[in-house]
Design a binder for these strands. Structure first.
Lengths: 187, 187
DNA sequence: TTGAACTTTCAGAATTTTCTGAAAGAATAA
DNA sequence: TTATTCTTTCAGAAAATTCTGAAAGTTCAA
């Protein structure tokens, strides 16, 4: 594999973006490389292509492993380990969401719940709790919603995405539909 | 306003989370403070409560302003400026999404499109372009989808969220509905 | 069991990000 | 105008993060 200008610009940009998704630049670059490489790559090759140390590659791959974004391949008669990105683009997006939820949303929800259970000591805390409850409800909603989207088949997810704002029209209709077919389901 | 243990734990946690949402710890803390304070706060008070320098507060407020998350209040007979969080929790979440989309998704989509336009120089680049196209399509889908969600009324959004995985059932039904009422809409 | 070929770890170096505080700027009142 | 009270800016300090490379660890063939 060689780093042509095209591939280079993709890898570098992905590196910058990576830091927004919860991992650092190098990790992003390593991942980008594995995603666009048809062949699995070994650690040395990754280090050479990106111009980073062997140790750094090792750390990066470990991190990507913990996100379940890469897998190790063993080649016939090779002692080295080769690395490959796992699953389809959709799977990857799902894993990133999932992982971020676990690492960020869940602890936040826990903290907010704890605070909501505390006895408010004064007027200020009463107001604070009210706001915190709003935030908690919003995050909980979003969390549950995204989780249920993830459980949808890729096929249905796609339909939903394609609907875009058309989802508004469907909803107008849905109220009646749901209340007839399944009274008091959740809302 | 005083930093009771309850409020402190909220503010600090929000600070940590803030960095995940595109701004740094201090900015997150300042924002948390403004969100749970019923009264607008002045810059000095914020600095004192958080134990950070006056200059840092100024930078933080500027940043939050650029995200349109805070607004300045002028009090009768006061020379100081007071700051307040803007809008409801939903509005805030929307602004953060919006801002991140502009800063991260849009540039990425542009880059990916550029790469897709390039002539592939060899087999490797052909494969790379294929993958890049997949990523592009996914991101574009997500971007359009979230944008159209944002244009929904809070009311409808709420219904949608509450639906959770029930959305799957609605979809089964939707195919027929949409193709009858609006043939060849988008999907 | 040894040695070759690899991987991982981690202390300290390098880099990047954030923060401070002094100085400059702005608004207002007298 | 000047004095006062606030805000902003930004160079350099401090802190946090990331990276390197040498050493230790692992695996396997012979």
């Amino acid at each position: 594999m060689q780093l042509t200008p095209m591939i280079e610009s993709f890898v570098y940009h992905f590196g910058e973006m990576g830091s927004r998704w919860g991992f650092n630049r190098t990790v992003g670059q390593i991942y980008a490389l594995l995603v666009i490489s048809e062949e699995p790559l070994c650690a040395n090759e990754i280090g050479d292509l990106l111009g980073i140390s062997r140790g750094n590659v090792s750390m990066g791959l470990k991190e990507l492993g913990s996100w379940q974004l890469v897998q190790v391949i063993h080649k016939q008669g090779e002692r080295r380990e080769f690395y490959q990105s796992r699953g389809s683009i959709w799977d990857m997006a799902n894993r990133v969401f999932e992982e971020r939820r676990k690492r960020e949303m869940d602890p936040t929800l826990t903290l907010l719940r704890d605070i909501m259970m505390d006895e408010a000591a004064n007027q200020e805390e009463i107001y604070a709790q009210k706001r915190i409850a709003e935030i908690h409800d919003l995050l909980e909603n979003i969390t549950e919603w995204t989780q249920s989207l993830q459980s949808l088949s890729p096929d249905k997810l796609n339909t939903l995405m394609k609907l875009g704002s058309g989802v508004g029209k469907v909803l107008e209709f849905t109220d009646t539909f749901l209340s007839k077919k399944e009274p008091a389901k959740k809302a």
